[in-house]
């Protein structure tokens, strides 16, 4: 399936999603409220079968007051690629957990929570994964401050 027909198929299944420009692979943008429904379709649709969640991460845009969540899906059955992006507000960064669809998402979401502070609804065990439990702040946010951290002198 070529990228164009893949995007067309996804759009017919869920009319609310938009194509995301500025990406090197087929990419769609999904409202966070429908994320779980779209992901379920993407995993279970017979022509799609996206069974491998390669990456789950978040990008911080403090100027636009949003986090962009990026999911990179791969289908080992059909050899397809798809980027799913979803925006959550920075003031209330809550997104549905996809760990019920892909078990690996449980730990990838823990990483996103640990470093970026994105909260996931219905996550079985949302704890920090790399940092200590008493760590203050989310270090990958652009406005993170740490008195121990050294800036590279110019």
């Amino acid at each position: 399936m070529d990228p164009e027909s893949l995007l067309a198929l996804v759009e017919t299944e869920h009319p609310s999603i938009r194509r995301r420009s500025h990406a090197d692979r087929p990419a769609v943008s999904v409202p966070s409220g429908e994320l779980l429904a779209v992901m379920t379709t993407l995993r279970d649709h017979a022509d799609l079968r996206f069974d491998l969640l390669l990456t789950l991460t978040a990008v911080d845009f403090p100027g636009e007051d949003r986090f962009e969540l990026l999911y990179r899906l791969y289908s080992t059955v059909h050899g397809l690629w798809l980027i799913v992006s979803s925006d959550v507000p920075r003031s209330r960064p809550v997104a549905p957990s996809v760990s019920s669809l892909w078990p690996i998402a449980e730990w990838q979401e823990r990483e996103a929570y640990d470093l970026m502070g994105v909260l996931y609804d219905n996550h079985p065990d949302l704890r920090r994964v790399f940092l200590e439990d008493d760590w203050v702040g989310y270090p990958l946010r652009k406005d993170y401050q740490d008195e121990y951290m050294l800036e590279l002198p110019k």
């Binding site: 420009s21 090197d24 390669l54 990026l70």
Partner: peptide, 22 residues
């Protein structure tokens, strides 16, 4: 790099190593 998401990956000795650049 041009604006946008860039992703590339290779097969290392342990599996797919990917780099996501925004």
């Amino acid at each position: 790099l041009p604006e946008g998401i860039h992703y590339g990956q290779v097969e290392t000795a342990r599996g797919a190593f990917g780099v996501l650049i925004v």
